[in-house]
Design a protein around this nucleic acid. Structure first.
Lengths: 231, 231
DNA sequence: GTCTATATCCCGATAGAC
DNA sequence: GTCTATCGGGATATAGAC
């Protein structure tokens, strides 16, 4: 019955991939040995080489097992009941959530993969394909979004997806190093400006503190900033 | 008269730092051994330990020897005679210049340092200080810039510097992996939108509602003879 | 397929001669 | 301060038993 061989094999493979994902994300790929991965999976290094041939093979298999992407998940989670600004705020909150360990580590792994891709064509190809897929999905989401809210996009959906991801990534990087330099308010304003979402009454102010600053309920967005006349 | 001793010492130190910068940028910090660095500098590993104590010490000394930053240089190089859009275009061109090997490698090293800083507080502190300094300089430049051109900033200069760097960084990353996904035209539009520079075409003037998304083909955008929309 | 044991290599760092 | 020589450790990957 149960069978043994195939089941155990699949189980081992899954265990190894899971352990690799955790450890790579937490300590960095180079800092984690094959032995460590195997041990965390309740196996030994021999199993890794039987399944993947090499450490690089393990990494590629790991990438291949990921169909999802950060941006994909983020945009999917946006509630549809809020104001445009509130929605962007929600997107940013997800990205900026450094407190959450798992998400924080994950983004570190993402960057390490990017860095590796920049020097290793084999890795680059995998990442490129995955990113393109995520971008397509994101663009579809954005296309629907821009028509449902009062926004003035400056490019086609695919381009907007690129811009959105770029700003989110760059802001998250700076925030990781120096949280105070990137206030939530600043990030949301940047996103609004980039995506062409009109703000009703904001102008520049400086201070930023973290904590729960509520979205100031910049509510419903029906429209019109009265104080921004076009010139 | 030649104080050969002191001179040679300083020379060795400079050689080691230079070799480390080149090799670290080209192959990655972890991929380069202390012996390799020393050899490239015409010395041996012993010299490295005499000067810096450890590989980490070498890295920190290297960081300390850098007073400049990408953004700092970039903003300083912008010609003042062009249109706002043209200036942003120039900034982007500098960032996007992947063809240049030295600049390309340099940005890779920057990312590796960021990654290392995310896990190593000692490195983080150094990077944080340097970034803050660059941001201050950049903010000053931007403050002058926004008053001299027709733009509507959405935050204080310091915030604008953060946003600008974030978008540039994110776009450069995507372009490195998939150049076609980030056209020059798209990047410049994003920058204009983020910085509040009105584009001649249409966008920023009317509080009007939806409508035009302007995919406007156009990509390569070799040149842009549009001029100054100052109305 | 998985484990144990090991071959092979290379790295960071130290000791001591000069 | 710099070099030569080397230690000790840990890494990837392989060989062969089960």
């Amino acid at each position: 019955m149960s069978k043994t061989q195939e089941e155990r094999k699949a189980d081992t493979r899954a265990r190894l991939l899971g352990a690799a994902a955790d450890l790579f994300a937490g300590q960095g790929i180079d800092a984690v040995s094959v032995d460590t991965v195997a041990e965390a999976a309740g196996r030994t290094s021999g199993a890794v080489y039987a399944h993947f041939g090499s450490k690089q093979g393990l990494l590629l298999a790991l990438l291949d097992s990921w169909k999802d992407s950060v941006l994909t998940v983020l945009l999917a989670e946006v509630a549809v009941s809020d104001s445009p600004r509130g929605q962007l705020r929600a997107v940013w909150d997800n990205v900026a959530d450094t407190a959450d360990e798992s998400s924080g580590r994950w983004s570190l792994l993402e960057h390490e993969l990017w860095l590796r891709a920049a020097r290793d064509p084999e890795v680059a190809e995998v990442i490129r394909v995955r990113d393109a897929e995520a971008r397509r999905y994101s663009a579809r989401q954005l296309a629907g979004w821009t028509t449902s809210v009062d926004s003035r996009p400056i490019a086609a959906p695919d381009g907007m997806a690129v811009l959105l991801k770029a700003l989110l990534t760059g802001l998250a990087m700076q925030r990781r190093l120096d949280p105070e330099s990137v206030s939530d308010e600043l990030a949301v304003r940047g996103l609004c400006s980039l995506l062409g979402v009109p703000e009703h009454g904001a102008q520049l102010c400086a201070p930023a503190r973290s904590g729960s600053l509520s979205p100031t309920d910049s509510n419903s967005a029906t429209e019109h900033p009265d104080e921004e006349p076009h010139r």
